[in-house]
């Protein structure tokens, strides 16, 4: 596999966007956006060298296996793929990862997690969706629970979260539930994003734009 990236700074991937604009719209600095471009190049050329992240490349990065099927990884990919064209472009990658930045607004993290769990995109998390997600998690883990136990866990969680008792969890109920259980969105923060320039320092020698406060 050849190097597609650092030696040709003027050749950008399809969907490339100006780092200064992306930095103005996200919690990232210009330097961090440029470092993310290094990561993006690596991910987007891991299987198909076209500078776009395909689902198989996303799965390969997450699981070290391009054929790994995972409900949640699929949902994350679909949310990152804002244009719904089957690939993640650089701008989509940066804007979506911005939600996972430690400095991103808590309400953005809560809203993203809601959309993630609203599998059928109805604007509500329904009981069947919750059970489907629990079953998917059990399938990927070594944890074995009886169907009665799964039903009990889903019932209890739904009873606690669905405070309006209308059989579905809306965004306000989700927000209230997360405020009672903040650990639920722990995975919505990636501390790595604060150190991204250390993880991908090679852009520094060729950076074109100075950061400004």
């Amino acid at each position: 596999m050849g190097c597609f990236c650092s030696t040709s700074k003027n050749v950008k991937t399809p969907g490339y966007e100006d780092p200064t604009i992306l930095a103005s719209e996200t919690p990232f600095t210009v330097s961090e956006v440029e470092a993310l471009y290094e990561l993006f190049l690596k991910l987007s050329n891991s299987i198909i060298e076209d500078g776009l992240i395909h689902k198989e490349e996303f799965q390969l990065a997450l699981f070290r296996n391009e054929n790994e099927k995972n409900l949640f990884a699929d949902r994350i990919f679909d949310l990152f793929d804002v244009k719904r064209n089957g690939v993640i472009e650089f701008g989509e990658f940066v804007r979506s990862l911005g939600v996972f930045h430690p400095n991103a607004a808590l309400e953005d993290k809560i809203a993203f997690a809601f959309r993630l769990y609203d599998l059928r995109q109805t604007g509500y998390i329904e009981r069947e969706e919750l059970k489907e997600m629990v079953l998917a998690l059990l399938h990927e883990s070594d944890l074995v629970l009886s169907d009665d136990m799964i039903e009990a866990i889903v019932d209890k969680t739904f009873k606690d979260a669905d405070t309006k008792d209308d059989g579905r969890i809306d965004q306000d109920e989700w927000k209230a539930f997360v405020s009672q259980h903040p650990s639920l969105i722990k995975n919505m923060t990636l501390p790595y994003l604060k150190d991204i320039t250390l993880a991908f320092p090679s852009f520094i020698a060729r950076t074109e734009v100075e950061d400004s406060e």
Binding site: I153, K156, L190
Partner: peptide, 26 residues
Amino acid sequence: VAPVTMNAFELISKSQGLNLSSLFEK
């Protein structure tokens, strides 16, 4: 035996598919 107090969303949040830190591993 899992306690019935287990939170379904807590369980779900443990999925490897939601662990994006893997993207940053070299």
